[in-house]
């Protein structure tokens, strides 16, 4: 037993241990070496990363996949209905004569109240009002001017009638304006219904414009192409659309003169 004890390896194993310990020196050296080695490896890796860039690892987000069926065959593509676009109204929205009041308002707040804040606010408001008023005035003036210019040529009589109105602005307020808007919309859809273009011109990007003159029953008295598309077949579609669309809806009584004298310009398609 003793022998075997004496022969047991623990002693020789124990022996090196103290030898390794001899002091802080050994530990420090090994630590230093370890640190140096680590640094070396790090440096190598860094260098490699810098000089030999590897393929970037692409991490993609997981995607939820729904199983989708293929679309069915459409028996027939639904005819594309172009919506009736609200046509631009040359008539401005005219509220009952705000114009004369405005200059006063602009001037008034200035006088009694020096505080700049309120003045600013008022000024802004005033500006806005003036802005809209000016636009209205401008639009009305333009309407009148154009109407007058157009009228001057053909006949004197309608000019007289129009001149007898109190003011063109007031003629397009309230019910008259509603009538007008409604009527223009009805003309739009009325013409559109009759306008067929050969499908071989589908991508030709052509457009033409025509002015029509209506009598009080909506019959076309006269039509005049003011802008040709340059394609006789396309132009013909426009002319025959007008032909087929006549008679037009009866114009509102108040507007008969405008339509008879100034006419309505139609843009195909715009």
């Amino acid at each position: 037993m003793n022998r075997s004890n004496a022969l047991k390896p623990p002693k020789p194993y124990d022996a090196p241990r103290p030898a390794m310990d001899p002091g802080d020196d050994g530990l420090g050296r090994h630590l230093g070496m370890s640190v140096a080695l680590h640094l070396c490896v790090l440096a190598l890796l860094t260098l490699r990363a810098v000089f030999y860039p590897t393929e970037p690892l692409v991490l993609e987000r997981a995607i939820r996949v729904d199983m989708v069926g293929l679309p069915d065959k459409q028996a027939k593509l639904p005819p594309t209905k172009a919506e009736a676009k609200p046509e631009p109204k040359p008539e401005p929205k005219v509220e009952p004569k705000p114009e004369p009041a405005k200059p006063d308002k602009v001037v008034l707040p200035d006088k009694p109240k020096p505080p700049t804040d309120s003045v600013k606010i008022n000024l802004d408001k005033a500006k806005a009002k003036q802005d809209s008023a000016l636009k209205r005035l401008e639009a009305l003036r333009r309407l009148e001017a154009e109407a007058a210019a157009n009228k001057a040529k053909p006949a004197a009589a309608p000019a007289l009638v129009k001149g007898n109105e109190l003011s063109p602005g007031s003629s397009l307020t309230g019910i008259a304006k509603l009538e007008n808007d409604g009527y223009l919309t009805s003309i739009d859809s009325h013409v559109k219904r009759h306008w067929d273009v050969p499908n071989f011109l589908a991508n030709a990007n052509l457009s033409a414009s025509i002015v029509i003159y209506l009598d009080e029953r909506g019959n076309v008295i006269k039509k005049r192409m003011v802008r040709s598309s340059g394609n006789q077949i396309f132009d013909q579609t426009v002319l025959s659309a007008i032909e087929k669309a006549s008679p037009f809806p009866t114009p509102p009584r108040k507007l008969v003169n405008i339509f008879m004298v100034d006419g309505i310009q139609l843009g195909f398609p715009e």
């Binding site: 013409v191 273009v197 579609t237 659309a241 310009q265 843009g267 715009e270």
Partner: peptide
């Protein structure tokens, strides 16, 4: 004319 209507697509 001063009254202008865009007919839209044919």
């Amino acid at each position: 004319s001063s009254i202008y209507i865009k007919v839209g697509e044919a």
